[in-house]
Amino acid sequence: MYKTIAFNGKFFGAPPSGVHKVAEQLIAATDALIAEQSGNAADYALVIRDSVKVPPYRKILCVQENPLVRRIHRIAWEQCYLPLARRKDFILNLCNLGPLCHRDCATLIHDAQVYSAPESYSLGFRLWYKFLFFFIGRRHKLIVTVSEFSRNELVRYGVASADKIVVVHNGCDHVLQVAPDDGQLATLKLTPRRYVLALANTQKHKNIAILLKAFAKPELKDVALVLFGGATKAEFEQLGHIVSPNVQFAGRVTDPELVGLMVNAGALAFPSLTEGFGLPPLEAMALGCPVVAAPFGALPEVCGKAALYADPLDANAWSQKIRAALDDEGVRQSLISAGRRQAGSFTWKRAARNLFEAVKAVTPA
C-alpha cells in the first residue's frame, strides 16, 4: 500500500492558465469528496515547490519544501526531486506532465494538440512535450483526459493505449460561486447584450482570425467584439490580422471580472479548430450567456445541442449565427435554457468522484 496519494503542485505559483484552473478545482473537489468518505484510511498530500498561498483543505495536507529545494528549477524539481521525495507515494499529476522515473503515477493529459496543431507551439515546446508524452503514456499506471475526443486523439497519436486512458470531464459550476464584477463594462464602455466575448489568443488553432473577419463586416458593425486574455492588438496586427474599430481588448481579467463580462454579454464566440474540452463555453452557459461555437474537437461533445455552430472557416456564417444569438429572442432564450441544463451536468463533484474511482482502481487496497 502506498504511504500517500500526492498531488503534484508544481503549478502553484506559476502564471494562471486554464489547465491550472482545472487542477485547482479538481484538488478542491477531491478534498471535499474525501471528507465525505468516512473511514477512508488513505492519506493525501499536495506537494508544492514554493511557499505560495494555496487554498485551505480539510483532508489534503499541504507539504511545502524547504528554502534550498525552492532554488531548484521547476523542471528539475518535478523530474528529479519530487519522485525522490515521494518515492513511496502514488503521484497525481494534473497539468499534462509528470516525473518520468516514477511509475506509480496518474497523469491528466488535456489534449493532443502538440500533434494535431503543431503550428500553435514553438519547436522546443513541441519536442519537450512529445518526449515526455511518449514515456508518460508508457510508464505511468493511468492516463486521464477530459473528453472522449481527447482520448481518441491520444490513442491516434500513440501516446497511450485506449485501455489505459480514463475520461474525466471537467466541471464548470465554480463560476456560480463567483460574485460578478461589472467594472469592465464601464472601463470598456460596453452596452449589455451588445457585445460578444472571445479569447484573446493568437494560437492558430484558436482561430480568432475568423472572428476578426466577421466583425469587420457591415452586419456586425454595431456590435463590439471583446477579447479577454493575454494577447494584445499589436500581437494580432503583427501576424497580419486586421483589427477593426469595434474590437476591444480587455486584457487579463480576474475571475469576478470575467463572470461580470459573461453575464452581460450577448454571446460567447468560440471558433477553435480543435479543443480538448472547451471550458469557457460551459462557463458561459452556466451563467446564461448564449454560445456560438465551431463544431470541431470536443466542442460538440461538451456543448451538445445547447450551442449554435458555425463553420470555422466562413466569416459570413459567424456573423449570421451571432446575429441570431443577439437579435432573435426565441433563439436566444432557447440557447440560455438549454445552456443552463447542459452546464448543469458538468460538476466538479462528479469529476472528482470519477477521478477518485479511477485512481483507486490502480492503487492497492
Rank of each mutant, 00 (worst) to 15 (best):
K3S: 12
I5N: 08
N8R: 07
K10Y: 07
F11P: 06
F11W: 13
A14C: 09
A14M: 13
P15T: 04
P16V: 03
S17P: 11
S17A: 08
I27N: 05
D31A: 04
I34D: 03
A35T: 05
E36W: 09
Q37E: 13
Q37H: 10
S38E: 14
S38H: 15
D43F: 10
Y44L: 02
L46P: 00
K53D: 14
K59N: 10
E65A: 12
N66L: 07
P67M: 03
H73R: 14
H73C: 06
A76L: 13
E78I: 08
L82H: 10
P83V: 08
L84S: 14
R87C: 01
I91Q: 08
I91C: 09
N96K: 10
L97P: 06
C101H: 11
C101D: 09
A106I: 06
A106C: 09
D111E: 12
A112N: 07
S116W: 07
P118V: 09
S120Q: 07
S122W: 12
G124P: 05
F131S: 10
F135I: 09
H140L: 07
L142Y: 14
E148L: 14
R151Y: 06
V155M: 08
R156T: 06
R156H: 15
A160C: 04
A162R: 15
D163M: 02
V166I: 11
V168G: 10
N170E: 15
G171R: 06
D173E: 11
L176F: 06
L185I: 04
L188A: 05
L188N: 13
L190Y: 00
P192H: 00
A198R: 03
N201W: 00
A214W: 01
P218E: 01
V226C: 03
G229K: 05
L239P: 02
H241V: 04
N246D: 12
A250F: 03
T254E: 05
D255Q: 14
P256D: 02
E257W: 13
N264L: 03
G266C: 04
A267N: 02
L268G: 02
P271G: 04
G278T: 09
G278S: 14
P290S: 09
V291P: 12
A293N: 03
P295S: 12
P295T: 02
A298L: 07
P300D: 09
E301D: 12
G304P: 05
K305R: 13
Y309D: 08
P312R: 06
A315R: 06
N316D: 15
Q320M: 13
Q320G: 08
K321Q: 15
I322Y: 07
L326G: 01
D328Y: 00
E329V: 01
V331Y: 00
V331N: 00
R353G: 02
A358R: 03
A358E: 04
V359S: 07
V362G: 06
A365R: 11
